[in-house]
């Protein structure tokens, strides 16, 4: 089937060209040109716009390897990406399963809306509302102390967990959506067939449902992992001093230090690392899917 699709699309390419042209034009203008400029910048000593004299250098890339801080932060960011992705799977997959296989009609639509809502709200608003919930004397703290008979101090603000909570909240809809789509495509009769053959619900989940929804899990994970590794907004606002990650350092180079060349070089190193990870992981994941 896949092979058929490929040959069909190849022969149909010529006629599809007029349809594809606007998309390619847009990609060229909006992504390729700025990106090329950034590649160019990353090899410069100074920003040409600043008026100072500049020259070509590999120094910006060398900086990454000369200071262990960058590597440490990159590893921390990769770990952050992994943890957030795992939490998104843990929370998002069951939610997608319930949406696709348990709920029907109205209640499905309502829950779907709740899951998608963070998607539609402004990122900053989302993060600052978490700040109000998580800080000492904030909503979570006050609510828990109102219910519990003893006094506890909940101050998650400016901590690693706060960053995780904020990021998971932002990105879990991706996982729910991609998993929902693959789960919904699984015919209920497959589940019934499994059970009629003596498999418990858990065995059906492990042997039939999860393998068949692997493409959704992989797509969701890729959609979440990549941006989370480079994220800076949630770490900065919710993480405070603990929120220094690779992404925040890149942001600093652009908005605070105005060292665009170094910022650009650090970005491309991140891009390379992420691409290598995806390339290494993809054969394994493809086999699983």
């Amino acid at each position: 089937m896949a092979a058929q699709g490929a040959t069909a699309s190849r022969s149909g390419l010529r006629s599809a060209l007029p349809l594809l042209a606007p998309a390619y034009l847009w990609l060229t203008v909006a992504i390729f040109l700025p990106l090329s400029a950034m590649v160019f910048f990353s090899f410069m000593t100074e920003l040409p716009l600043s008026g100072k004299p500049w020259a070509f250098t590999l120094g910006n890339y060398a900086a990454f390897f000369s200071q262990s801080l960058y590597l440490t932060l990159l590893l921390a960011s990769l770990r952050l990406g992994l943890v957030v992705t795992l939490w998104c799977i843990v929370i998002g997959y069951p939610a997608a399963y319930v949406l696709a296989k348990v709920l029907k009609g109205r209640s499905r639509e309502a829950i779907f809306l709740l899951v998608i809502l963070p998607f539609w709200s402004n990122g900053l608003v989302r993060i600052f509302s978490w700040a109000m919930v998580l800080r000492e004397g904030g909503i979570l703290d006050t609510a828990l102390n109102a219910v519990l008979p003893f006094k506890i101090n909940i101050d998650l603000m400016y901590s690693y967990p706060a960053v995780i909570i904020g990021l998971v909240h932002s990105y879990v809809p991706y996982m729910v959506l991609t998993c929902y789509l693959t789960l919904q495509a699984i015919d209920d009769s497959l589940i019934e067939a499994g059970r009629s053959l003596g498999a418990s619900r858990l065995q059906v989940l492990k042997r039939v449902i999860i393998p068949l929804s692997m493409p959704g899990l992989v797509a969701g994970a890729a959609l979440i992992f990549v941006p989370v590794v480079g994220s800076f907004m949630e770490p900065r606002i919710l993480g405070g001093r603990t929120g220094t990650f690779y992404g925040t350092v890149i942001e600093d180079q652009f908005v605070a230090v105005f060292n665009w060349p170094l910022g650009a070089a650090l970005s491309f190193i991140l891009l390379a690392v992420v691409l290598i990870i995806l390339a290494v992981a993809s054969p394994v994941l493809r086999r699983a899917a």
Binding site: D187, E192, A193, R195, S196, L197, L212
Partner: peptide, 19 residues
């Protein structure tokens, strides 16, 4: 429940596991 009844079932759409 189904899995304890020791029955065999053939579905109209075959319901073979595609994976």
């Amino acid at each position: 429940p189904v899995e304890k009844r020791r029955i065999g079932m053939v579905f109209q759409n075959y319901a073979l596991f595609p994976n």
